[in-house]
Write a protein that binds this DNA or RNA. Structure first.
Lengths: 139, 139
DNA sequence: ATGACTGCAAAGACTTTGCATCTTT
DNA sequence: AAAGATGCAAAGTCTTTGCAGTCAT
C-alpha cells in the first residue's frame, strides 16, 4: 500500500532547484538556494523531500562528499569526477561506463545490480591552478 | 615539515584489524572488534588512526554506507559491490576497471585523477534469498 | 473533513577535538 | 625530557523525527 502524494509548492521548488543545477547539490545548498524566495522553508522539508524523490527514482544520490550527501537529477548512468580539494562534483558525459560490466557482476557473483557508479577522485582544473599559485609563492 | 610517528600498540592493532578483514570495516566495527583485547581502547583513537592511515595512503575510504564510512586496506584499484539492503561491501576482483579511462578524464577534462572508483549498488545473494522468502510468505 | 505536508525544535548518529595523562624514543 | 599517542567527554556536523498547525483534495 503506497501513500498518496499531493501537490506541494515547496516540493516543486526543491525538485526544480536540483534539476536546474549541475553542481549535484546538497540539502544545505538547496535550502540556501530557496530560502530567499521561500522564507518559511525548513531544512527538514528539504530532507524529507529528498528521501521521497529518491524513493520515486526521480533523483539519485551520488555519494557523500565532505560529509554531505550530494544529489543528481539525472538518473541515467554517467560518470562523475569529485574534486577532493573543493568538493566539486562534475558530470563526465564523455566517459562511457562499460554497459556489460553490470551484467558480468550479476553472472559471476550472482548479485542483482541496480546501479553502477563510476567516479574519479582527484583535483579539478581550478584547484590545480590554485595549487600551482600556492606552490610558486612558497618557492 | 612532517610530524614524526611513533610506534603504538593500538595503532598496530587497528591496522591489523582492517587488514585481516575483507568486509571493509567501519570505525565502529574496528572498535568493537578490538575492544575485548584492548579494554581501554577509545573510539577517538580509532578515528584518529583512520585519518593517519589515509594520509599515509595505507588505507582508503570506499565511501559512506548507511551513514558510516568504510575502509579498505587494499589500495590497488578494484571494483566494489555495495548491497543496499544489508550494507555489505564486497570486492569484485574479477570486474576490471578500464585503466585507460582515468587518462581519458585527464585529457578530455583537464582534471588530475588520483583514484578511480567503480562501484555497483544492488542486492547481494543473501539478501536476494531473504527477499524471496519474504515475498513467498506474503503471497 | 481527511490525510498529506510543513515548521520548528529536539533528538540521533557519526565524527572530531581539547585537555590531562601515559608512552615511545 | 620532549613530543607523540591515548582516554574521556564535550562539541560539532549532518540528518531524522515528533508534534501541532497548515494545506491539498
Amino acid at each position: 500500500m503506497e501513500r498518496a502524494t499531493r501537490y506541494s509548492k515547496k516540493r516543486e521548488a526543491i525538485l526544480s532547484a536540483i534539476r536546474s543545477s549541475d553542481a549535484h547539490p546538497s540539502a544545505e545548498w538547496i535550502y540556501r538556494q530557496l530560502k530567499p524566495d521561500h522564507p518559511d522553508l525548513s531544512l527538514g522539508t528539504v530532507y524529507r523531500n529528498l528521501v521521497l524523490f529518491q524513493q520515486q527514482g526521480t533523483i539519485q544520490s551520488v555519494g557523500v562528499v565532505n560529509g554531505q550527501e550530494r544529489f543528481d537529477a539525472c538518473t541515467q548512468p554517467h560518470s562523475h569526477f569529485v574534486c577532493t580539494h573543493c568538493g566539486a562534483v562534475i558530470d563526465l558525459y564523455q566517459i562511457p561506463m562499460d554497459a556489460g560490466l553490470a551484467g558480468a557482476v550479476e553472472e559471476i557473483y550472482g548479485f542483482q545490480v541496480e546501479r553502477p557508479e563510476l567516479t574519479f577522485y582527484g583535483t579539478c582544473k581550478t584547484c590545480m591552478h590554485q595549487k600551482k599559485i600556492e606552490e610558486d609563492q612558497v618557492l
